[in-house]
Design a protein around this nucleic acid. Structure first.
Lengths: 198, 198
DNA sequence: GCAGGATGATACCGGTCGGTATCATCAGCG
DNA sequence: CGCTGATGATACCGACCGGTATCATCCTGC
């Protein structure tokens, strides 16, 4: 086994992983070289390649981890309001709003990676599409539960709001994202009011 | 003066510029090297550096050009419905919807560049922020003209929809963007109905 | 104490990056 | 014609890229 708690603390793999996650998010994937990651994690390039087969796989692993944490948070939040889909939707948007209000935030790691990675053969590509596909599906499920007139339409509209809020942070326009929750509420209300017209 | 119409057609500068624009948009900025641009434009790296001082400036120039064309299209569209801000808003969203339905589309060049360029000293940075700031302002102006209860709030909401529609294309999730116009209409309607409550 | 596996350090590989210098060519114009 | 300025071609620069091989070290379980 690895050492327990020498001067370097966690295992090299964990140090590399968390360092890579932060650097990829803050500076971008292509802007960060493996040597920089290794040095920042107090190890060497060789150490990195003992824990990860390639930079591309490290990127994919990072996004898989983000996906896991994202749904973990999502589920924990949902379970606070069982049987109350409206509340669950609101809490989801509150989560986005909170993240987006963080001055250190730089949007959604998945979306940013999608912009940088144009080659469909990159292992991160399917991670991204699966994640966002699942997000859309989960939104649609909540919209169905909440009794929207056109649940999948409402889900798509909310999806656009979420993605718009995240990317607008990257644009350096911090204002609009502050109103993402109100926009969501307005759209949800509209879909509930016309409930009986279908 | 340059030659008029030899076998190569337009001037090297224009060939380089349009080639760079397409490659930057399709493959990303960092993914495309100056040598590739030059070769694709049927010239050499030296020819590129005779027309542009650096790659960074070429990128900035590309985005400045996009900005100019964008507002040109926007203004032309506005002038088709003088005094009808609602129609102008709808046409703007129809424009986005049309672009986003193009299978070759890969989102908004400005937003994609913002993701790739994390260094604030890059000359393209202020082009991006100025462009998006202006977009937000123009939306707010139209929302004021249309008589919205809270015009700047509505403008922010519409801004999120526009950006969300563009980035969702990059995510490989083509569905939601198809409903961007309907979402916009719903939000506008809501802000018009509660007009007298303020 | 000793063996062995995990780790760190260093040097190296071929390739590509952005950017430059030099020289040949070719068009248009006096 | 010959000149000039724009262009193309080639070689080169230092730096960095992702990835690998090799060797020294050091902790740990036996």
């Amino acid at each position: 086994m690895a050492r327990k708690a020498a001067k370097a603390g966690p295992s090299p793999r964990k140090r590399i992983f968390s360092t890579a996650a932060e650097l990829f998010y803050r500076r971008g994937i292509r802007a960060v070289g493996v040597e920089t990651i290794a040095a920042e994690a107090s190890t060497t390039k060789m150490g990195l390649y003992r824990s990860f087969p390639s930079k591309d796989e490290l990127v994919a692993e990072w996004l898989r981890d983000h996906d896991a944490r994202f749904w973990q948070t999502w589920d924990a939040m949902s379970q606070k309001h069982p049987g109350d889909p409206r509340r669950q939707l609101q809490t989801a948007f509150a989560l986005i709003a909170k993240h987006v209000s963080d001055p250190a935030a730089r949007g959604c790691p998945m979306a940013n990676a999608a912009v940088e990675i144009t080659d469909n053969r990159h292992p991160a590509r399917k991670v991204i599409e699966t994640h966002k596909g699942k997000l859309r599906a989960r939104l649609a499920q909540l919209c169905r539960e909440v009794g929207a007139a056109e649940p999948s339409l409402l889900a798509d509209e909310l999806f656009l709001l979420m993605e718009g809020a995240q990317i607008s942070i990257v644009l350096g326009v911090r204002g609009p994202a502050r109103n993402v929750s109100r926009a969501a509420d307005t759209l949800i209300d509209s879909h509930l009011q016309q409930k009986r017209s279908g």
